[in-house]
Design a protein around this nucleic acid. Structure first.
Lengths: 241, 241
DNA sequence: CAGTGGTCTAGACCACGAA
DNA sequence: TCGTGGTCTAGACCACTGG
């Protein structure tokens, strides 16, 4: 952990989860946090702002920082948190079958450019995985990773955790992702891998992930059995202009 | 607009959308923002932090604030932005049919309590609306609003914009919402109002909305035709502990 | 009235990128 | 080396809540 605000964020979060600060109670006031942690007020406020942003507290003027019901991750959530991290957090029985691995695939380049594409196709590593939850195949993940960013990927990384390899081994800084959720009829591949009937529906999550230097490097299509899909979100209302 | 950071946020956002700062370009540096707007650096940083949080820019150390592809809202998005606000932003032909209005309904109280419920049911106003997009009925919205917070709702408010009434007329401060997206088979009501075949699927968004003082006051079930549903999101990766 | 959070400032030191 | 963003500080003034 790099900075004081993050340290305090993590400490407060842990204490919320351990119910040192239970639901409906107030965190120590900002001035108290200054003394408790030996920090300035603005630093403490950054930690509180993150907790509020993520739905753990609601700050109420004149009163304090109230602990509110935070969304617990429910499986499967798709996005910027790696599958293995989620499974570990939730203590879920999960298995990971690599059913396709092509280190020399191509993808239309426009997906990976933030302005105008200069070439038409981009070399990628293509990985296809089936996620088995509690013995039942529930998700097909198709990942395409730019070879210009990640030249080689060992198959073992695909079998364990791709993000652990990218961040831990290669030191890449994964920063943000855009994702889109739609509902689509199951295709033949879906029905085969997930053992579904004709007429079944899928929740499809398509996402593009970028590094800290804003280079998009990973395109993912994640296809979920409709009856196993649940997505939870927390949102704050923008201040009106 | 209350504070300088929000003013600057809005100004920069407008200039991004008008391509004064186009995709792939850099915003003025933090020191330049200080001079441009006559503010301190931390104030400008708060504006930039909001832009980054919402996916408009990526801050790169040693370089600057890069304008990146931001998710444009695509219809229908459900959550903390009102339907009418979205429709207006997108310039979409939309109509709103109130097909149910019960000012004396009841809902299990546990939905509205953040700790232990003390009573079993809560008086609510129940509103059922069908959203017609480009002449086609696409969404059924069922809203339940706590009467202890909003005692009376004129039917005209349901016909135009509920949020305009709550915020503009009553001065309520809507602060945050949790939502959950699932996929479910269409029920009889869905098929009737949206003219669907048997076997059709729905995207169902259930959300609980709360005020600035953390009182939950509105429960909504929003049922979307599967083929019209699209949800877009932007997420940043948490700094690892 | 005292305590809470909300905003803003001016300045300091650091880490990173480009030339 | 210089300009960029990243972090942190100490202090100020304001607005709201509650006794």
């Amino acid at each position: 952990m790099r900075n004081k605000a993050t340290l305090i964020y993590n400490d407060l979060l842990q204490k919320i989860e351990q119910e040192v600060y239970p639901l409906g109670s107030y965190l120590p006031s900002e001035n108290q946090l200054c003394e408790l942690y030996g920090i300035s007020r603005e630093t403490g406020r950054k930690a509180l702002a993150s907790l509020a942003e993520n739905g753990y507290i609601q700050k109420i003027r004149g009163k304090g920082s109230l602990v509110i019901e935070h969304r617990q991750y429910e499986f499967p959530v798709s996005g910027i948190v790696s599958y293995q991290e989620l499974a570990h957090q939730l203590g879920i029985q999960t298995r990971n079958e690599v059913v396709g691995f092509n280190p020399n695939a191509q993808l239309p380049a426009h997906r990976f450019t933030i302005v105008e594409p200069t070439v038409t196709v981009a070399p990628v590593t293509a990985i296809k995985r089936v996620r088995v939850i509690n013995g039942e195949p529930a998700i097909i993940d198709k990942d395409y990773l730019l070879k210009s960013v990640v030249p080689t990927i060992p198959k073992t990384a695909a079998e364990t955790s791709l993000y652990a390899y990218l961040e831990g081994q290669l030191g890449l800084q994964i920063a943000y992702a855009t994702k889109e959720i739609t509902m689509e009829p199951a295709n033949e591949e879906d029905r085969e891998y997930l053992q579904l009937d004709k007429g079944a529906y899928m929740a499809v999550v398509r996402s593009m992930t970028s590094l800290a230097d804003a280079r998009p490097f990973q395109y993912t299509e994640s296809r979920h059995r409709a009856d196993k899909f649940r997505f939870r979100d927390f949102a704050r209302r923008q201040k009106r202009g």
